[in-house]
């Protein structure tokens, strides 16, 4: 399991409006594309200098494809990254202010302390 790679997905998608839109509309396509093109990119380097060893596990890929932020939390993905990206994806589909954020909290209501370890 690679919390780092989950975080890298959340980080690189969140900052690119085009990728956010693709992840919202076609998550399976976007996750597959991301694994092929960005998972091994060392950010800020040239394309010929990628890493060779990073890959999502099956359960990680499934959680990303299904927008399953509860499982991402349980896996120890960084909560700030997960929250920020999923607000971008779902906030507009809720009419009430903070409606999505409160639903998100409710879906995590079963979680007790200590929370999953987020260290990478």
């Amino acid at each position: 399991m690679s919390k780092y790679l989950l975080n890298k997905f959340l980080f690189t998608v969140d900052r690119d409006p085009e990728l956010v839109a693709r992840y919202r509309d076609e998550p399976a396509e976007l996750v597959a594309w991301w694994e092929d093109t960005l998972a091994n990119r060392i950010l800020g380097t040239h394309t010929g200098e990628d890493s060779t060893w990073l890959a999502l596990a099956d359960d990680e890929r499934r959680a990303l494809v299904e927008h399953d932020y509860v499982t991402l939390f349980e896996m120890g993905a960084h909560p700030f990254l997960t929250l920020t990206l999923f607000i971008a994806i779902y906030e507009e589909s809720h009419d009430e202010p903070l409606g999505f954020q409160l639903e998100y909290a409710e879906k995590l209501a079963h979680v007790t302390l200590p929370h999953p370890d987020i260290s990478t």
């Binding site: 939390f73 909560p79 700030f80 929250l83 954020q101 998100y104 909290a105 995590l108």
Partner: peptide
């Protein structure tokens, strides 16, 4: 709390 069960209370 951000991204957890106690957020935005």
């Amino acid at each position: 709390e951000l991204g957890g069960p106690r957020q935005f209370g």
